[in-house]
Amino acid sequence: MNTVAAAASTGEAVQFWILGTVAVVGALCTILLKKAVHSALCLAGTMIVLAVFYLANGAYFLGIVQIVVYTGAIMMLFLFVVMLVGVTAADSLTETLKGQRWLAAGCGLGFGVLLIAGIRHARLAEFNGLARANAGGNVQGLAELIFTKYVFAFEITGALLITATVGAMVLTNRERTERAKTQRELADKRVRDGKHLPPLPAPGVYARHNAVDIAGLLPDGTPSELTVMQTLRERGQIRDVSHEALNDLKALEQRSEERLGRDTDSHPDRGRDHDRAEEAAK
C-alpha cells in the first residue's frame, strides 16, 4: 500500500478512465440539473470519486478525510440547507442576464483550453512517487509536517474555524428583542383580534389525498390556505387538488344519474364531462 509508483499501472489507468468519466459526468450534472437536491447528490458522487483518486495518489489520509468531512459532513450540510430552503423548488434554467450564458461559455471554454495548453506546455518533472515520503506512514508523515513546518498555519486554521463557527451562529441567530409571549397572552390576543378564535382548521384530508401541503376545502369547494402550515404557505408549496375533488364530485353525480336511467346523450357537454369523469375515476 505504501508503494505508489511513479508511473501509473495499467490497473490505475483503467480505474482513472472509468472513474474520471464518472467524475466529469457528476460535475456536469451538478451544474445542469434543475433541482438543487439532485445537484447536491451528483456533487457528492463526484467527491467520492475524487476521494478514490486521492487514495490512488498515495494521499490516504486525505482520501479518508474527503469522504468523512466533505461527503459526510459538508454535503449533508448542503442537503440540510436545501431542505430548509425548499427541496422541491426547482430553478428555472432560462437565463435572465443578457449574454451571460454566452459569456460564461466563452470564458469557460477559453479558460479550460488555456489551462490544458498550459499544463501541456509545462515542463513537468518526472513523477517521483511517494514511496519514500510515505515510508513512515502517510498519516505520520503529514503529522510531522503539520506540527513542525506548518504549525503556525495550523494554529491559524484553528482560529479560522472558531471564527467561522461563531460567525455562522451570529448570522443565523435571531436576537429576541422582546419577551416571549405566554400562552395566556397569545390566547388573549386571539380573542382581541377576533379572527380564528377556534384552532386553525386542519389540512385537507380526503380518501386519496391527505397530506399537510394540501389545502382543505371550504364548504363551497374553494381551498382555504389557512389550513396549510405557514412555512409551506410562504414557500408557495401548497398543492391544489380542489379541481380533482370537484371532478370527482361531478363524476359521482354522473354515475348516480346513469344509475337512475336518465338520458345523457342529448347533452353533448354532459357527455364530455362524463368522459372526463370516467378518466378521473380510473
Binding site: Q100, A104, C107, G108, G110, F111, L114
Partner: peptide, 12 residues
Amino acid sequence: VSMFGGTAILIA
C-alpha cells in the same frame, strides 16, 4: 464573468 474573463486573459 468579468473576473473569470480577466483571469483567462492573465493566463493567456
